[in-house]
Design a protein around this nucleic acid. Structure first.
Length: 574
RNA sequence: GUCUCAGUAGCUCAGUAGGAUAGAGCAACAGCCUUCUAAGCUGUGGGUCGGGGGUUCGAAUCCCUCCUGAGACGCCA
């Protein structure tokens, strides 16, 4: 397993592993991966299962556990250890761990998560990549949001990142767009609402083409003219692009999404022939059914078509050209594609061809795939007009947030921008928290719910911590606050903070922001419990007050970091 | 037909480098605001981890098989 042991484990785990290593003679970097967190905190803070050791040493797990418990207790580096059913349960020096963890969280928040392992590396991340003159639906949300979050995650890990919007700005559909516009379009109407209007014209073109097949020829003709550089075709095409990007940018601004480059498919039009030449030089091209392909049967894949039987290139050629451009021009040694799971085979083929071309960076290519977005159980299809517009979703979420503010906190200042942050945050977080390969059925009731495991919940917890700290103004400096005693409920918070690096390393290794969302939710839960059960500002003992404020500040800083990485606004009040 | 991915509480999902009694949230019900933001906290009910075999001291997790759903499977991207 590639990722095994690659994570920077908590310092507490490494400490335990080194004691066990000394006692057993085994490698501590291996041992550290065996260490677990006990299912019940009453059992201990860390647990070491002895079953595997039992096999090696040919002794009973219980026997080993008891012996190890003695060694660990005797080391003075832990509060205690006891054997229980083949496990050694270890209690940490909680006051010490709390003191150092909280200080780190407050003063160097990012280093609690990241050890900058990707310093010196360069990644090109391809995300969002909507089609020009097509509506930006909820279906595009996943690539956009997950991609942007991965960009931030990699940057936090010291990686240089180039964010690329690989716009769908080329293809026969543009011939249809042009033909439809020239037949029925009106410049003023298009300017009012460019993407929706162009899309309407496109849909109409399809409808009418059913009865008038000559329309298809008209579309093909206009695409041909576009390819040949016809001025009218070029002008309209460029206009569609400019208007579409302007519309997309409004949505991106709202989502706080940005790119280093907008490089659409058309950008590679003049860069594909060089790829074909290189493939030919490498003797990778073979003729098959009139087309030129790279044979991949050895790897159980269908051939990768490079040139169609009519001599034209195809998207595989384009993606190869794009990959090479990203490597050569940006110096990217890692290429990330945040694209739906339906293109899995395509990317497997592309990556394999790059490998066959002898590109050493081919092994660092990663397709971050995700399931399909559905609506009422049905596949969304832009062509058939089945679209849920992202703008509609966002504005409904913002309206809902505004309503809730009005009923819960009407005296809040800057209500409008808070409503925006909360509404948008709910939409983003909803998409990020359960990222897996599952298809998701988009439902308004889920997105508009702000209770429980949601973005607003995390934002609320952050605001809550901020509120306490505001009222404690001047009572807390940046100096380390030393814990004399940590309550069980306080410890749950510290214990969560302590695991930040493990979550982060896995999130980076698996390109999965949902782990950060999960981490933040667990932290919120622990903190809210603490907030509910313990007085902070009104704690009688001044030193207790200090430590609780420090814990609150640590939580605030860490939630702020998580929210930012995920792309949500960390509000100070809501 | 072949390949890939998925199947865990009524719903949405964690857990899938094998480990202790399978966890959250939503929804339902019952509590908690004269105290730091109740978008919160606590409790109750709810499960043959799709079915069946196997490997192992131990399986939701690994292997085999079957069932169900989605996607892909050469000139769209």
């Amino acid at each position: 397993m590639i990722f095994k042991g690659s994570g920077r484990m908590s310092t507490e785990k490494s400490e335990l592993a080194s004691v066990v290593a000394k006692a057993t003679g085994l490698d501590s970097t291996e041992l550290v991966t065996w260490i677990e967190y006990p299912p019940n905190p009453n059992l201990g803070d860390l647990a070491f299962p002895c079953f595997r050791l039992a096999k090696i040493q040919k002794k009973s797990p219980q026997q080993i556990a008891e012996q190890l418990a003695k060694e660990i207790s005797g080391s003075n580096r832990f509060a205690g250890a006891e054997a229980a059913g083949g496990y050694v349960n270890v209690r940490l020096l909680r006051d010490k761990v709390a003191t150092t963890t909280i200080h780190l969280a407050r003063t160097a928040t990012e280093s609690l998560f990241s050890s900058q392992k990707m310093k010196g590396r360069v990644a090109a991340v391809d995300y969002s990549s909507p089609n020009i003159a097509k509506p930006f639906g909820v279906g595009h949300l996943r690539s956009t949001i997950i991609g942007q979050s991965i960009v931030r995650l990699l940057k936090a890990n010291g990686c240089e990142v180039v964010g690329i919007n690989h716009l769908g700005d080329w293809g026969t559909q543009f011939g249809k767009n042009i033909a439809a516009y020239l037949r029925w379009g009106d410049e003023e109407v298009v300017k009012q609402n460019p993407v929706r209007e162009l899309f309407h014209l496109y849909v109409r073109f399809h409808d009418e083409a059913k009865d008038n097949p000559e329309l298809e020829d008209e579309g093909r003709l206009w695409f041909k003219r576009l390819e040949e550089g016809d001025p009218t075709a070029r002008r309209l095409w460029q206009w569609f692009i400019d208007e579409s990007i302007a519309v997309f940018k409004k949505t991106y601004d709202l989502l706080d999404v940005s790119f280093d480059h907008y490089l659409g498919e058309s950008f590679y039009n003049d860069k594909m022939e060089a790829v074909v030449d290189e493939l030919r030089r490498d003797n990778l091209l073979v003729e098959s059914e009139g087309a030129e392909v790279v044979d991949l049967s050895e790897w159980n894949m269908p051939p990768c078509i490079i040139k169609k039987s009519d001599g034209a290139s195809i998207y595989a050629t384009r993606d190869l050209a794009a990959a090479m451009y990203r490597n050569q021009t940006f110096g990217a040694d890692t290429l990330v594609y945040v694209v739906g799971a339906e293109q899995t085979l395509h990317f497997q083929q592309i990556f394999k061809v790059l490998e066959l071309m002898g590109k050493p960076w081919a092994k660092n290519c990663k397709h971050v795939s995700f399931g399909m977005m559905k609506y009422n159980g049905e596949r969304l299809s832009t062509r058939r007009g089945k679209v849920v517009y992202l703008d509609d979703v966002l504005s409904r979420a913002v309206d809902e947030a505004a309503k809730i503010i009005e009923s819960k906190n009407p005296s809040l200042s800057d209500k409008e921008s808070v409503a925006k942050a909360v509404g948008v945050g709910a939409v983003i977080f909803n998409d990020l928290k359960t990222y897996r390969q599952h298809d998701v059925d988009f439902r308004y009731e889920d997105v508009l719910n702000f209770d429980g495991e949601t973005g607003p919940y995390v934002q609320y917890t952050h605001a809550r911590a901020c509120s306490v700290l505001r009222k404690a103004e001047g009572m807390l400096g940046q100096d380390p606050v030393s814990f004399a005693e940590v309550t069980e409920i306080e410890w749950r918070v510290v214990s969560q903070l302590m695991q930040a690096a493990e979550y982060f390393d896995r999130a980076v290794a698996e390109y999965d922001p949902s782990l950060i969302a999960r981490f933040a939710l667990d932290l919120c839960q622990a903190f809210n419990r603490f907030y509910h059960d313990h007085p902070i500002l009104t704690a009688e003992d001044p030193s207790v007050r200090q430590t609780r404020l420090a814990l609150t500040d640590a939580t605030r800083a860490v939630l702020n970091w998580c929210l930012t990485v995920l792309g949500l606004t960390a509000l100070e009040a809501m």
